[in-house]
Amino acid sequence: MTNRAPLIPPFSWHQAIVEPWTDHQPGTLWMVLTAILLAVPCALLGNYLILRRMALVGDAISHSVLPGLVLAYLLFRDLGTGYMLGGAIAAGLLTTLLIDFLTAKTKLKSDAATGIAYTTLFALGMYLVNRYTSRVHLDAECVLFGELEYIPLSEPSALRVGEWGFIPMAVLISLGAALAVGVLLKVFAKELKVTSFDPGFARSAGVRVGFIHYGLMALLSLIVVTSLERVGILVVALLVLPGSTAQFFTRRLARLHLLSVIFAVTGVLGGFHLGSWLLVPTAASIALWGGLQFGAAWMGTLALQSWRRAQMRPAR
């Protein structure tokens, strides 16, 4: 092992930044576009999750869609998108219902209820996979970090854009999910805002709090299952990191949305280039870059706070 490669490859401007956009086109474009199309709706939904203190529900749902997918497959013997989406949304809603039921009917707090719901459902999913679908292999790598890298190779759609060639199907699916989330969030913006900040007031004002809650969860399941195929369980990173980072800069919802979208896009771009430098799975490097953004914002805020404190101390 004398002539081995170093653990962290040397940084090469050309390889990490330039080449992807020149030599590997249009693959890079499709990959980055898909990632952004997933990251932006995730960031918007994530803001509401953080406000509602449900960030871990995103994690829970990303695990518990598994039994939904397996049951949909077992019932219909079809891996079509429609069945998978239906199964995932049903499983996501079931998770939320279970959590709500346990917190309402027992003295268990929501964290324990979340833990019970998602581990049991995940165990059920794994059990079903092993028991009935031994031929459909549950690929660990796919569950972990999806297959963002394979988008350029995936099934092309019928749409063609000039010299770029056919648009991959995956891009269109992500676009559809993003549009669905965007439109619904826009339509229900007022209800979401009021139920997130003050559910008691919302109920007294006649907003259907339960409907909004479960609608949000259905939307979350939709985006989670769409992302799961591409970025694996690191979808949680897309959900919570941009919103958490944006929290350092503002307390107003509109600015929070704007900033989290910006952080989502910079996270995808930075993560993509980090991945091309280190040659690691893009999903992981996107999450890492998001973590770096979060860390920078956190440290910056702390530094600013201590500087201000120093300024306020009376001079001798």
Binding site: A55, L144, I233, L241, Q247, L278, P281, A287
Partner: peptide, 20 residues
């Protein structure tokens, strides 16, 4: 940040670091 958000942030960053 509330505990749930802090937990998810740490979870996802550490896990991504592990995979990388």
């Amino acid at each position: 940040l509330k505990p749930d958000a802090a937990l998810s942030v740490v979870l996802t960053v550490f896990f991504a670091a592990g995979i990388a």
